[in-house]
Design a protein around this nucleic acid. Structure first.
Lengths: 237, 237
DNA sequence: AACTTTAGTGTCTATTGGTCACTTATGGGT
DNA sequence: ACCCATAAGTGACCAATAGACACTAAAGTT
């Protein structure tokens, strides 16, 4: 049998495969704390529980995995997040009551302001403060996925300025430092923090300033490739 | 309808989902070069081409994703590799002629000696030098997956001693440095290399030595958690 | 014993983060 | 207007760790 004949006769349903979904751990910073986006499950299993935005791939509509998650996120927030990264894939026969199930899970960041309006109308989605997660019983293994995302983001905070994507397009250095401090879980030296960013020339001075209490802070924006930059030495520790 | 009824009525085949497989990029060091394990595809599509070890999940036999890849690797090499790590998941509608397909891809390392015998008898598996990959037309997007694994391993070489898993249980520091040099692609200062490993106390002196030309080199073995250790500062650059 | 080869060390320099006091810019209260 | 509180931003020195490279050490070979 040649390949053309094989493909013609091929029936994907003959193969007994696992369920396959995508999920996203979308973080933002609001009121000095990290928050994660949760949605209320409208269907079985775990109906009524809160879980991560995500779901099955639509093999007609989605052309790749990232497409699929972004579609799911847009449904809830109205916009695509400025940062998204594959986190991990979890697959086993116990995480979903329906059977062997695999999720490809992403972490994403967005500024609170950039999607606030969009889902003020959607009552089945909410931002949840990370420290209050243990009070909620989450669907599937989503608590574990959030913890994984959290951990990954903490690492990124040590050697990159990826956390900047949790802020609006223009932000001040003290604001950025604050995001890093929340993620790393301890205060940082402003001098060290600023020095490395300046040296690597990662930000653009917009010329604008923001006043809030004391001396006005300069507003910066990210350069195009700044999210990919990796400092050779970690902060903290 | 309650959850029990839903689950009872649930039919996974009603859902039109993607194909789902696992693959592994297994590297080793042999004759001073990095090699990757390839297997000859015995079935369609891309029958006869070389590709990564891997395949569909067996939802009866495998209890999770890692189980599944390790099973695939054991089939080819006879042993489970001492190091395995999730690399990435790639899913789209163009990588497999059969339709929308997702692979969860792992990187793994093993000592050449530890599986040489096992698959000397298997003629459909071979180690291929990385620089000769462009001469072979690989199945699916496997060339890209290998490049991804290569890149990840290079990063690991900069801030960890994970590459040690490409060596036998006992190895010398010059040997380890050599693996790192191959991965990073340039020579390293032996003093710097040794100093950081000694300082972090990552290896155990076995008391044995290896003679080869000049002064004998001390044989070390890894401590248990040494693969997880991350230096705060990168080598090279 | 002298030479070659490879392992391993001593020591100085370079880079970058840590610390912390100091200066600067703004608003508010007297 | 002046002083103070507050937050932004800098100067200067210290600490940790990688880079460079010459030197010593231990083996085999001639």
């Amino acid at each position: 049998m040649d390949e053309a004949a094989y493909l013609k006769a091929y029936n994907p349903k003959a193969y007994d495969g696992p369920l396959m979904s995508v999920d996203a751990v979308l973080f933002t910073l609001h009121e000095e704390t990290l928050k994660v986006l949760l949605v209320k499950r409208s269907s079985h299993p775990d109906r009524g529980k809160w879980g991560l935005p995500g779901g099955f791939i639509d093999i007609k509509a989605d052309s790749d995995l990232e497409d699929a998650v972004i579609r799911k996120l847009k449904e809830k927030t109205g916009v695509a997040p400025p940062y998204i990264e594959q986190l991990a894939s979890i697959g086993n026969n116990s995480r979903d009551k329906r059977g062997w199930s695999v999720t490809v899970c992403y972490t994403a960041l967005i500024a609170y302001q950039d999607c606030e309006v969009s889902f003020a109308t959607v009552s089945d989605a909410q931002w949840v403060v990370l420290s209050e997660l243990d009070k909620i019983s989450l669907a599937f293994d989503h608590a574990q996925l959030i913890e994984l995302g959290r951990e990954r983001l903490k690492q990124k905070a040590l050697y990159s300025i990826v956390p900047a994507y949790a802020l609006p397009g223009k932000f001040t250095l003290p604001e950025l430092q604050h995001v890093h401090e929340v993620l790393i879980g301890k205060p940082l030296q402003k001098k060290s923090f600023r020095r490395r960013i300046e040296l690597a020339e990662l930000l653009i001075d917009t010329g604008e300033q923001r006043r809030e209490g004391g001396r006005p802070a300069t507003l910066y924006k990210m350069k195009n490739k700044s999210g990919d930059y990796r400092f050779v030495r970690n902060l903290g520790e």
